[in-house]
């Protein structure tokens, strides 16, 4: 009999413990985020498509030197075209066109690691959707200029 009583009391206490768990979570703040109206911060190591970074000495320009290491090292041949122009009085070239085929890119990050001028990073744009394959051929120079303008 004594065993039964102690198990009865234990059972009753466990019922109360369960109630306390649920009432605590009832008053805890909700974890749901209202997605279209409220966007969570993107973690710093999120890998979106690659983007061009600004030259720290000359923020108007991309840091890219048009060396072509990223294109040569890309395992999926996703970097289609890199073109630059020579500027009078400058030692380096200025980037005019950087075409990325995002359909084949696997975000491996080799281009980011290999870039000698630290000119490539990952964007945090996760809202990528399109109707055509061509929607994912990005000209990163245009994207860079757009970002420069808006900031």
């Amino acid at each position: 009999m004594t065993v039964q009583y102690s198990s009865f009391i234990q059972g009753a206490l466990s019922l109360l413990a369960g109630l306390s768990v649920t009432i605590k979570s009832f008053f805890m703040p909700v974890v749901t985020s209202q997605y279209p109206r409220e966007v969570l911060d993107i973690t710093p190591r999120f890998r979106g498509h690659i983007k061009l970074l600004a030259d720290p000495e000359n923020p108007e320009w991309a840091a890219c030197l048009v060396c072509g290491v990223c294109q040569a090292g890309c395992p999926s041949h996703s970097i289609k075209k890199i073109e630059g122009e020579k500027i009078e009085g400058q030692k380096r070239k200025r980037l005019t066109s950087f075409i990325l085929d995002f359909t084949t890119c696997s975000q491996c990050g080799l281009c980011v690691e290999n870039c000698p001028s630290k000119g490539i990073g990952f964007s945090d744009d996760f809202n990528l959707a399109g109707y055509k394959r061509e929607d994912f051929y990005f000209d990163l120079v245009q994207e860079f200029n757009k970002r420069k303008k808006s900031s």
């Binding site: 008053f27 909700v30 974890v31 749901t32 209202q34």
Partner: peptide, 10 residues
């Protein structure tokens, strides 16, 4: 509402 908040939903 009670169900939602007890499961940390809205």
């Amino acid at each position: 509402k009670v169900a939602g908040h007890m499961q940390l939903r809205i």
